[in-house]
């Protein structure tokens, strides 16, 4: 199989290595995320999933290797050049990372205000985003008045404002009730299938994996969104997986391949189903 590099990928890691002190976190890791593809990243706690997202944003630099965003190499970019690249990316932080001195409204409006979008356009966008995550009622509350799940959803709304073409989700469903978690997965499906957004979706939850790898979304003639379950004939689902362990990618492929992977670690990971 020949590997082609270049602008067809939304995100590409090429032989990326990163160590903190003498602890190697990522060891020669390569993968790519195509445009409109969802990449589910799995792996035990502390295997470097969040680190991968931080590298993709340019928040930290790799010790070796190259990182491309939208075909552009960002490895040696300075902060100013990175600012431009980050415009294309929305990031949902694992702990929310909301600005705690700002209201929910100001948090979600942050990116638009930074881009000097007139307030008359900011308000409807923010309200629409908050309706999307079902939090319009909390619009003028401060983050420390919200529950963990609400904070997570504000973080999602904040990341999605400005319609970024790449979205990085760091365990967006962890610790949420099944209905909210399902809503977040549906959101990811809509971004993938209707907006052609490329994403990295870090998760441990088998339900998320199930939804993201077996369902797809279309819009019918009336413009309504319809969810479909994948059957055997069609394979429209643009979701692929990687599994990290000990600094390496031990699996990369589709859900069928994942379910048939012989590796005992992967088998154990998936058998938590129940």
């Amino acid at each position: 199989m020949t590997r082609t590099y270049g602008p067809q990928h939304a995100i590409e890691f090429r032989e990326v290595t990163l160590a903190f002190g003498d602890r190697v976190i990522l060891d020669n890791v390569s993968f790519e995320v195509g445009r409109g593809e969802s990449k589910i990243v799995m792996g035990g706690s502390g295997t470097g999933k969040s680190t991968i997202l931080r590298l993709a944003l340019g928040l930290i630099k790799p010790d070796a290797g190259q990182i491309f965003i939208d075909g552009e190499e960002i490895t040696d970019h300075n902060e100013e050049q990175l600012m431009r690249v980050r415009q294309k990316i929305g990031m949902v932080f694992q702990e929310g990372a909301l600005f705690d001195s700002m209201t929910v409204y100001e948090n979600v409006a942050y990116r638009l205000r930074e881009q000097k979008v007139p307030e008359s356009e900011v308000e409807p966008t923010v309200r629409q985003m908050l309706r999307f995550v079902d939090l319009e009622h909390a619009i003028f509350q401060l983050p420390n008045e919200l529950s963990g799940g609400m904070r997570r959803r504000v973080g999602i709304a904040r990341a999605l404002v400005g319609s970024p073409k790449i979205v990085l989700f760091d365990e967006p469903t962890a610790g949420l009730d099944p209905i909210t978690a399902r809503t977040i997965c549906e959101l990811a499906l809509k971004l993938r299938d209707l907006e052609n957004v490329a994403s990295i979706f870090v998760t441990h939850r088998l339900q998320d994996i199930e939804v993201l790898s077996s369902e797809y979304v279309t819009r019918n003639e009336q413009g309504d969104v319809e969810f479909h379950k994948e059957n055997d004939e069609v394979c429209l689902v643009n979701t692929r997986f990687i599994m990290l362990k000990d600094g390496q990618i031990i699996f990369s492929g589709s859900d069928e391949q994942l379910n048939e992977a012989p590796d005992p670690y992967i088998r154990r990971f998936l058998q938590r189903r129940g």
Partner: peptide, 10 residues
């Protein structure tokens, strides 16, 4: 991570 979020938001 608010500083990181700030950087991520440009």
């Amino acid at each position: 991570e608010q500083i990181d979020a700030m950087r991520a938001l440009g």
